[in-house]
Simulated scan of single mutants.
Amino acid sequence: MSQFYFDIWDGEALVVDEEGLDLASRRAAEVEAALSLADIAKQLEPFASSDGLAINVRDASGLVLRAIFVCERDQPVN
């Protein structure tokens, strides 16, 4: 098991994870980051900007991965 920290970037501010989670592998950290992004995205106001929404996952040695939420909307054709 390894300790992973999930720092959340909302496009304006970074919320640093001080506690972390004890997970079995990097793959488990990837899954946790994806699920966390989905949960955060569900809480966004409709049509709110999600530009820059990301989770930086780190361990004792530094950055492991960066999960980024991308929301693309089709523009109506006039």
Rank of each mutant, 00 (worst) to 15 (best):
M1L: 11
S2V: 09
Q3R: 14
Q3F: 05
F4G: 10
F4W: 06
F4P: 05
Y5K: 08
Y5V: 09
Y5T: 14
Y5I: 13
F6D: 05
D7Q: 02
I8S: 11
D10S: 13
G11S: 02
G11H: 00
G11N: 02
G11K: 04
E12Y: 03
A13E: 10
A13C: 05
A13M: 10
L14N: 15
L14G: 15
L14H: 05
V15C: 08
V16N: 01
E19H: 12
G20W: 12
G20T: 10
G20Q: 13
L21C: 14
D22C: 09
D22Y: 14
L23H: 13
L23V: 09
A24G: 13
A24T: 12
S25I: 09
S25N: 04
S25M: 12
S25D: 05
R26I: 11
R26K: 10
R26Q: 08
R27G: 12
R27I: 13
A28D: 12
A28M: 05
A28N: 06
A29W: 00
E30K: 04
E30C: 14
E30H: 10
V31L: 14
V31Y: 10
E32N: 07
E32K: 07
A33V: 04
A33T: 07
A33Y: 03
A34F: 07
L35E: 15
L35Y: 10
L35I: 07
L35R: 07
S36D: 15
L37I: 02
L37K: 07
L37Q: 03
L37M: 06
A38I: 04
A38N: 12
D39Q: 09
I40L: 14
I40E: 15
I40N: 14
A41Y: 00
Q43F: 01
Q43K: 08
Q43S: 01
Q43L: 06
Q43W: 04
L44M: 11
L44K: 09
L44W: 08
L44E: 14
P46N: 06
P46L: 00
F47N: 09
F47S: 08
F47I: 11
S49D: 09
S49T: 06
S49M: 06
S49P: 01
S50E: 04
S50N: 01
D51H: 04
D51G: 02
D51I: 00
D51A: 07
G52D: 02
L53K: 00
A54R: 07
A54G: 04
I55A: 14
I55M: 07
I55R: 11
I55C: 06
N56Q: 15
N56F: 12
N56E: 15
R58S: 14
D59N: 03
S61V: 12
S61W: 03
S61L: 11
S61T: 10
G62L: 02
V64N: 03
V64W: 00
V64Y: 00
V64A: 13
L65Y: 01
L65S: 04
R66D: 11
R66I: 11
R66C: 11
A67Y: 06
A67D: 10
I68H: 08
I68P: 00
I68D: 02
F69D: 10
V70E: 15
C71Q: 05
C71F: 00
C71N: 09
E72K: 04
E72C: 09
R73G: 10
D74N: 12
D74F: 11
D74S: 15
D74C: 10
D74T: 14
Q75S: 13
P76Y: 13
P76A: 15
P76R: 15
V77C: 03
V77Q: 08
V77N: 01
V77Y: 06
N78Y: 12
